[in-house]
Simulated assay, not measured.
Amino acid sequence: LGVSGLMGAGRTELMKVLYGALPRSSGKVRLVQQEIHNTCPQDGLNHGIVYISEDRKGDGLILGMSVKENMSLTALAYFSQSIQIDHKAEQLAVGDFITMFNIKTPSQEQQIGLLSGGNQQKVAIAKGLMTRPK
């Protein structure tokens, strides 16, 4: 689902409510014919909802971290068994998204703040898709 609209129309706020980053003041949210209550972003992720911010620098990425760390941050549950991260599986998944989105980076370890804005945006989108949203 993508939502568009003019600035100030409430599209960002609507998406943040669906994701759980802002509280819902009224109405109901239904997903696959079931009402859901997202009170925090983790609830949204657990329901298969991701939010890809239009403000990648302020809301979407951690500029001091690497491409790999940014991309896999919200999907670490897919790469962990108990408390240990399967770094090989993480690297393979990140590599797949780098290839799929044609992200121009010298390595997965490259600090994301050093990439072009377009490549940063690609990483932000890949970060959302890596969580396997519904």
Rank of each mutant, 00 (worst) to 15 (best):
L1A: 14
G2E: 13
S4V: 15
M7I: 11
M7V: 15
G8I: 01
G8C: 02
A9N: 08
R11G: 08
R11N: 10
E13F: 13
L14W: 11
L14C: 10
K16H: 13
L18W: 03
Y19V: 02
L22W: 03
P23Y: 11
V29K: 01
V29I: 15
V29E: 07
L31N: 01
V32D: 14
V32T: 06
H37Q: 09
N38P: 00
C40R: 13
G48M: 06
I49L: 04
I49W: 02
Y51M: 12
I52T: 05
I52Q: 03
R56H: 05
K57Y: 04
G58S: 14
G58F: 10
D59N: 15
L63W: 05
L63N: 09
V67A: 02
K68S: 07
E69I: 00
L73K: 00
T74G: 04
A75V: 05
L76T: 00
L76C: 02
L76M: 13
A77H: 11
F79M: 03
I83A: 02
I83W: 08
I85M: 02
D86R: 05
D86T: 01
H87L: 13
H87S: 12
K88W: 10
Q91E: 13
V94I: 13
G95H: 06
D96K: 13
I98R: 01
T99W: 04
F101V: 09
K104G: 03
T105R: 06
P106R: 06
S107D: 15
Q108R: 03
Q108F: 04
Q110F: 05
Q110G: 05
I112M: 06
G113V: 03
L114A: 10
S116K: 04
S116P: 11
G117S: 08
K122W: 10
K122P: 00
A124N: 13
A126Y: 07
K127R: 15
M130R: 06
P133L: 06
K134I: 08
